[in-house]
Design a protein around this nucleic acid. Structure first.
Lengths: 417, 417
DNA sequence: TGAGAATAATTCAATGCTTTATTAAACTGA
DNA sequence: TCAGTTTAATAAAGCATTGAATTATTCTCA
């Protein structure tokens, strides 16, 4: 499973070797999380003693995995610390967020700086093993555009829609190639570590690393796109549930005997608060004779109305559109109120097309959520619109991968610590 | 914070001392979790080497904290292992589940065997510091009834209703004594470690240790008593949420513009599926002229009807009662369906008076839950009625306390491992 | 019945780690 | 300006840990 120079093969390691491995990862992980640090700080963060940190770092320095940062701002008294940071140039992380329409590629260096950020038309998602070839072609293109050598790539993280079992690296709706989990197949094919993740979990992870959920232990990421998704960060970790299916927020019932949902149930949240729902309701109402400038001015037929038209209409003050978005927001707010009551989060992040494009949407959601949740629980909840936009997923899997490369837990044999 | 002979004062320990402390706790915790084990097994479980386990155990043996179990069933070849187990007589754990009507006291020995199990009328719950005196009196009575010396008590776990911040040992609705968290005050007063826990979290923990949720990583414990409560075990740990308020399941809205709930909202799940709800609905319908044998045969006035009467009626085939319970069950099922969609649990446990007394209730709940949750998520969910009854809470805090006494994490300084 | 096989625990020398002391490098203030 | 202070890193000594070899105990089968 381990392929890069970062992590020597661990087939038959003694206890000392494994300890060294843990120490290396402990330091690399600390540098990944906290940025440049002195030996003393590293000792404090990792819980190791200074001599051990010193020795381990000197090995990492020799291997060019860590280097001394240039900027030396010595303001305090005492011997200036010899700072250490990850060597950005030592390797790169590729995060690929494959959506139904577009695929986002993000390359990070080891200092988690964005080296390249590419958006391309998606290869058609399927369970046909042939798509690996197409994916490889795309990756090669993206790498060459960014000027990153294949050999410098430390691993590949892939975010997929539909059902995914991240822990097992198994695609279910897509990338389900039968015999082995997608992670195994891709990992062998590319001869690099591969991490497969569900799109909303990846998004949640991205927000936790780069976005609004930084340093937040309990955050919910709600994505309002064509569908409705939820990624949960609970106790600082992405929550998967027993089988990896947690977060099916779009299909909880909010309208008794409501509209029929494509999942087979009635009155799902997704039938009243999602791009799909807004489009459908707008078309229905217009067909039934509702008058609105988004039809009269743009001369659109009902079939040409989509979420974008509604969002634009709302921005121009179109009552029809505003009402539509407000209704959806209130419903979503009611759904989020349940989440607040159940999970007592510190932060709710709204992502996806609608919250990003329509600033007032957040307010409807917040109002709905506050109205229907208990005060002790909603008192301190913060609401935010994702600042990462459609990059959250790709960023998320990229750092997921980094954490995987520097994973400490798996090396520790104890059941408890 | 540490008081017993189990855990030496840790004011100023070197790294070696702390390591030894961790090793001790690692072994004690393993014995707590897995029961009697050989040195070799302990080495495997804890990840330590045999010589280290051997030395540590010999110290623990000298301190009489662990002993050799009597039964020696040597069936296999080879030198028979020298088994080790916790010395049950070395100390006792007191778990107190303070309810609004009754208080359950459970004393466990270190082998987590129930030494005594007492149910007494509750002292009135309040924020008056005077109740500590009353509590102490009660504890003294329970201990003397059980023949357990005060000095042998390793600590006290207390489960409380209302709002509680378990991590901080802080009572909010009750046991809120102002200046310091209840844990600190009680701990100083009794000169023993004290653990404060929310009643539903304690119940969840009890189920995880002794009941249906044994070895289950993701389980939900729903308590249907006078109110409606939820304790969640996510990824093997009790989930608290950001501020410790998670699990307010009873106040998520299930009926739009429904009955007014005492929390101020309308249509809360608790207004249709709880002891309070069933009693209210039964009285309302009877007042409005509904005919049922639970009134005609027992000659009860509407005000004398309670949940118990309805449950008994249902057991005797009374259509009125059956329907009432079925409706409540279906509503609860719908609520649980949301939980299943959101959290993808492996197990849902129903506790409290109604599920315990009315066997058919589980079926209504299960049917409702299956109907309104997605198939991939509900396919493998198991439903069970709590087998621990009203003991779950007291058992839960008692072992919570044990885990606390043998806690490894807190001694480990590393941020990662 | 006793030698060998199997399993478990202990011993001990080599290795590695923690601790304490020392060196290094900068700032502070009389 | 220089001794004292502060902070950081390294060196060395003593002690704890590892891992291989040894001892211990029972079972199996000739």
């Amino acid at each position: 499973m381990r392929h890069t120079s970062l992590t020597p093969r661990s087939d038959k390691m003694g206890k000392v070797d494994r300890k060294n491995q843990i120490r290396r990862n402990l330091i690399l992980r600390a540098l990944l999380d906290y940025g440049p640090k002195s030996l003393t700080d590293l000792a404090k963060i990792t819980g190791m003693t200074l001599p051990v940190v010193s020795r381990t770092v000197s090995v990492l320095r020799r291997e060019k995995l860590v280097i001394e940062p240039r900027e030396k701002d010595t303001v305090q008294a005492g011997r200036p610390p010899s700072m250490v940071k990850l060597n950005g140039k030592a390797g790169f992380l590729l995060g690929i967020d494959i959506g139904r329409l577009f695929t986002n590629f993000i390359i990070l260096d080891l200092e988690t700086r964005i080296v390249s950020d590419t958006r391309r038309k998606s290869i058609p998602l399927s369970n046909d093993i042939g798509i690996i070839d197409e994916l490889e072609k795309e990756i090669k293109v993206v790498l060459s555009l960014a000027g990153v050598e294949w050999s410098k790539l430390l691993g590949i993280g892939i975010s997929l829609p539909g059902m995914v079992k991240g822990k097992e690296g198994l695609g279910e709706t897509y990338f389900n190639f039968g015999d082995a989990p997608a992670r195994e197949i891709l990992s062998r094919r590319f001869d690099k570590p591969v991490h497969i993740e569900h799109d909303l979990e990846a998004m949640a992870f991205g927000e936790r690393w780069f976005g609004a959920a930084k340093d937040v232990k309990n955050a919910l990421c709600v994505n309002v796109g064509w569908g409705l998704g939820l990624g949960m960060i609970l106790d600082g970790k992405v929550f998967y549930g027993e089988e990896g299916y947690a977060g099916e927020f779009g299909h909880i019932q909010v309208v008794r005997n409501g509209e029929l949902c494509y999942c087979g149930k009635r009155g799902c949240l997704e039938t009243v608060a999602s791009g799909r729902a807004i489009t459908k309701i707008a078309r229905d109402r217009i067909t039934k004779g509702a008058s609105t400038i988004i039809v009269s001015e743009h001369k659109l037929t009902p079939d040409e109305i989509d979420t974008e038209a509604v969002v634009k209409g709302a921005a121009r003050g179109d009552e029809f559109s505003i009402e539509l978005l407000e209704d959806a927001g209130r419903y979503l707010g009611a759904g989020i109120a349940m989440l607040i009551n159940l999970l007592n989060p510190a932060l709710v992040i709204l992502g996806g097309g609608i919250p990003t494009a329509a600033p007032s949407f957040l307010e409807s959601v917040r109002a709905g959520a506050k109205k229907q949740s208990l005060v002790p629980l909603n008192r301190n909840v913060k609401f935010a619109v994702s600042s990462l936009g459609n990059k959250a997923g790709a960023l998320g899997v990229a750092v997921y991968l980094a954490e995987d490369l520097f994973d400490v837990q798996r090396l520790n044999p104890s059941a408890y610590v």
